[in-house]
Design a protein around this nucleic acid. Structure first.
Lengths: 206, 206
DNA sequence: TTCTGTGAATAGGTTCACAGCT
DNA sequence: AGCTGTGAACCTATTCACAGAA
């Protein structure tokens, strides 16, 4: 398949959310213009994004809301569920563990790991916090698809090494440090501080 | 000033982190190649990013670590502190309130607001949770620079309206919904679910 | 007539490659 | 010799504009 840009994938995710909202409101049809308005983009962009994957609309009419939602779910790989583990039961880890939006989209957090003896054995929204030293053994028994790394910077690379050895497919890294992983493992970095800094940049330079 | 891309600003934020780490290790000089390696980019990209703002390096030598750090702090507007309020004392709000990385960079969270009577009056890492109905009055008394919106989708637009009326300069929106604000207010959307979905897309299409 | 699908044109961002300091 | 700074070349993403289906 042709290489699709990350911006396109992110927009598809947005469109899907609007489609689900629209479906909840009983709408059956939606135009590229309406999707664009809600996503802060243009109708041409919406059509172009979709055209990479097929022709889902009807000329003169628009798109069937439930059909397009299904198509985008398939494109994004949301037609199945994913086993997710979370490493690091700190502030961010805790927030993510409890975030309902993940489960709703089929991302099942199956375990939380930490190294702090005071946290190990406690429960976070129903999930037992396990000893991170058991991580590798657990991965052998129950392979997982995605890992969320929310440890301090110092611990992140070692955790990633174990996840990679355990055969994880993708890593979402919240630790404020660049991490090394083989090219076959998909790594995505999320940097909260940088988000705020784009705001301070904009405030300072307007 | 010339229009700078968001990617450049985000990378500057990364470079700054590496510079601060290097400074902690006592390094006095760093090359674009080293910054690139740590930031997962190329030396040409580093030099190009910096060149939009000036010539900070010495040919044949590299960049002075403390000088470049100071320059980037100035560029990003981190040479001053920002008054930040957080609306929504839920999971994400709580995590953000406690995140030390913000304060370290001069983002001072001065207040947390919520509408839940059970939360109002409690303390989150030293900060009193206030009644969101007092938000507008408080903004009159103490103007703020940045607001972080971490409410449910339904509440977000109303909160944004009040923040805008209260003269906020920028909004970081974690609510899973597009929000309307005048063009003069800088709005940045953070979408956790979309981050995970770029991973499921990559897993489904490799 | 309305709105999609898509080549073509434009704009924007990244990489190349080399001149020019140190 | 080593590494920066930067125009030019390249590549990628977005927007335009219009043919074509409902």
């Amino acid at each position: 398949m042709r290489k699709i840009s990350e911006s396109t994938v992110r927009r598809l995710s947005l469109y899907l959310r609007f489609l689900e909202q629209s479906q909840g409101q009983g709408l059956t049809t939606i135009s590229s213009g309406e999707l664009a308005r809600r996503g802060g983009t243009t109708s041409a962009q919406v059509r172009k994004d979709l055209s990479f994957f097929g022709s889902f609309g009807k000329r003169g009419l628009g798109y069937s809301v439930p059909e397009l939602a299904t198509q985008i779910r398939d494109i994004l790989g949301l037609d199945r569920s994913y086993r997710v583990v979370l490493v690091g039961a700190g502030r961010i880890g805790g927030a993510l563990a409890q975030y309902e939006g993940f489960r709703r989209r089929g991302f099942d957090i199956t375990a939380i790991y930490d190294c702090d003896p005071r946290k190990i054995g406690t429960r976070w929204s129903g999930l037992l916090v396990r000893d991170v030293r058991k991580l590798q053994a657990d991965l052998k028994k129950e392979p997982i698809d995605i890992a969320i790394v929310a440890t301090p910077a110092e611990a992140a690379q070692e955790v990633v090494n174990q996840l990679v050895a355990g055969g994880v497919g993708a890593i979402l890294n919240f630790a404020p440090v660049a991490i090394d992983a083989p090219a076959a493992v998909i790594v995505k970095h999320v940097n909260m501080a940088a988000e705020l800094e784009t705001l301070s940049y904009a405030l300072a330079n307007r």
